[in-house]
Design a binder for these strands. Structure first.
Lengths: 240, 240
DNA sequence: CCTTCATCTATCCTATAGGATATTTGGCAC
DNA sequence: GTGCCAAATATCCTATAGGATAGATGAAGG
């Protein structure tokens, strides 16, 4: 008796999750880190055996993943890792980002006061991990998958904070759809870590614009950043 | 024997669908037409009994619906019809539409030549059904659910064509997320049919801008249209 | 009369089983 | 050796069963 009951501390944060959700996280993580060749079959039974669960929750997790665009489904044939983004689709992705993130930046500027300190924090982390990457590279070591993963997470966090700053649940939802595609693109396109310095500078310009309080200036800085990322990605594709 | 086999005619269009997909369509239709009170429980077993299928495909269809925002899920508690859009969320929805549809209109202007005839067709249908609505109202008859449904479909078709005109799969995906929410909003907000004349005029202005070929003008016309719809929706909410 | 606790029912969640479909393997004919 | 067909295997898809959890009902105590 007399079990220690932790009262309300963060009770709202504790949201119960079924097995389905955990399988979803695991498969998502698997798709993000281990770069599977596009078109690889994702056998439901095989995944179920691997994770020691029944096919049912796996099936549901894959239905959910299908809506993110990371996997494709053909009825009665199964799921596959989504094909890589063709050059045309890469352009479309950046067009969509220009629309979405440009607009989101304008809206987020309404709450700039709350947003600026968060972006400062995110940028500081970005600077820090860039330094780490450079040091590792200078020592001639190969960048560990974990480090690359962390770098991408921190880089995207800056963009994510801006979406969150709009306080618009619909835009935040859409940002997640974009997010998965951007992460996937970075697996195929080599770049992403090599342009760390430029990314930091451009993020800094966006932050500065937020400090200024002009939504138009901030949106312009964001659009400029995305266009530059697009250019760097184009060069990478061309050189591969 | 000797079954009549229809050869290749439109074979590409015939895409095989599992039971899961049919259940999805049925539940989606049910959510769109029969206006269920928000918060209504969607029992998996009950739906399965209704449709004479096992719970498994129903469960998968609901997972898919969850991503559209039409239903909400609480682990171990089940699915419910999504709560109605609060005033705040209504504003957020229009903000998101301004960003998305404004941007999409700019991009669609690149392919204006192909788009204009389609929009002309859509607008003609819009005019036609508006006339029908007016006649029905003039006779003092109550508007049938089918007529209202058709009106909404035709109205939204104009917006959908513009998304399709971007030829951007990512934006088209996002438009579907918006579409379900807009349809749902129209169930709660009374307006939508009453402003038929204004909608036709504003759509006409967008079409005219596309004919002119200026992407900025077209985007401005679209944003103006959405802002006006927002205003009309606000008035409706206030008067209820 | 109201609160509290136990029991009971309904529902969700996961696991297992079997039929249906796709894919692969092996063999045969050319 | 190459192309085609058939059987075997693997996989997907739906159905059913049982354990687990949430909500409801009813009784006991204050």
């Amino acid at each position: 008796m007399s079990e220690t009951v932790y009262p309300l501390a963060g009770a709202a944060a504790l949201e119960r999750r079924g097995l389905r959700d955990r399988v979803y996280d695991l498969v998502l993580d698997m798709l993000m880190t281990a770069d599977l060749a596009p078109g690889t079959r994702l056998s439901i039974d095989a995944i179920a055996r691997d994770l020691k669960v029944s096919p049912t929750p796996v099936r549901e997790a894959l239905v959910q993943l299908e809506r993110t665009g990371l996997v494709t489904r053909e009825a009665l044939k199964g799921y596959r890792v989504a094909p890589p983004l063709a050059a045309e689709q890469l352009e479309a992705l950046f067009d969509a980002r220009l629309v979405l993130e440009g607009g989101a930046t304008e809206l987020a500027a309404r709450h700039a006061e709350a947003l600026v300190p968060q972006l400062e924090q995110a940028l500081a982390e970005h600077v820090e991990i860039s330094r780490l990457v450079h040091e590792t590279a200078a020592r001639g070591e190969k960048l560990s998958l974990g480090l690359i993963r962390d770098y991408f997470a921190i880089d995207w966090n800056f963009h994510h904070l801006i979406f969150a700053g709009t306080q618009n649940p619909f835009l935040i939802d859409m940002s997640e759809a974009i997010s998965t595609r951007v992460h996937r693109m970075r697996q195929t396109v080599k770049s992403g870590v090599s342009d760390a310095d430029e990314a930091v500078i451009e993020h800094g310009a966006i932050l500065e614009a937020f400090r200024g309080g002009s939504s138009d200036t901030a949106a312009a800085a964001m659009r400029d950043h995305i266009e530059r990322v697009r250019e760097r990605a184009r060069r990478d594709v061309a050189s591969s």
